[in-house]
Amino acid sequence: MVSPRGHYREESPQVANIELIRQSRDRSVPETGQGLQKGAIHTDSVSKSYGGGSGRIDAVGNISIDVAPGDFVSIVGPSGCGKTTFLKLLGDILEPSTGHVEIDGRPARAMRKGRRVGFVFQNAVLFPWLTVRENVTLPFQIARSGGRFRRVPNEFLERVDRALTTVGLEDFGHRLPRELSGGMQSRVALARALVPEPAVLLMDEPFAALDELTRTEMALHLLSVWERVRTTVVFVTHHIQEAVLLSNRVVVMSRRPGIIRRDITIDLPRPRSLESRRHPLFGEIVEDLTLDFHLSGRD
């Protein structure tokens, strides 16, 4: 489908599902470093309701979506539309009421248990009693210890150090989280999510608590990290400019119960930077999405 303005493609959710994997291979979606496709997400009529009877709340309607391996998809929508709930369904933090989620052809639960799904939350969720390095080592600690505190082997600790270098915090490993700025804390959370090398990285408004400047800085940082690691990212945000700058694809959700209203492919060239904002297409998509965003909020 072509947008009325003819500059960028807008897919109906159904068509988008079929088209996506092909697009990702021949366009801007990167291959993984090892040449293996990984992180393909498939959801089939996934919904989530809370409570029962007259007090039942339908948070997420039926959502069927496919995300190609290594893609960067943003989900935008009005507050309370079920974006976060949907992300938690993808990561098996919540169980769907109907439908199912698959990652790389396996149930989301199996992928979570195999620690193949990374999660970055709205707040950095760092353990204040652990140093930055210990926080990033946590996924390995948990994978190894089985309830007891065992030493993490050096090869894993080297991966922790590499992750800290990737997010530019190699000199802050011994610090406590409270000694870091908000932006630095977000970077630690990103390093912790990346260190087990997940197939899918789910990010729930990770920069929402940051000021505008730091937020932009973090978005650019995420871009550069993603260019290197090429893991599949599903990024929930209510910041349209951020979504357009980062993503290959933006999914707009309706008000509760959240369903997919629009699914837009962002054809901005990569690698992207702050300069990408000057691209005529950037402004056009942002303007269109902003209008749509407000309309979806009023429906």
């Binding site: 933090i93 990374g118 999660f119 939350f121 969720v125 009693w129 946590l138 600690q141 948990i142 309830g147």
Partner: peptide
């Protein structure tokens, strides 16, 4: 913190690990 518990779930932590590493501290 609920989000910490969700993080531990995403890391497939056992009940004992959640207690040792989140609830106790």
């Amino acid at each position: 913190d609920t989000t910490m518990l969700e993080l531990m779930r995403s890391l497939n932590a056992s009940r004992t690990q959640v207690f040792q590493r989140v609830k106790l501290p």
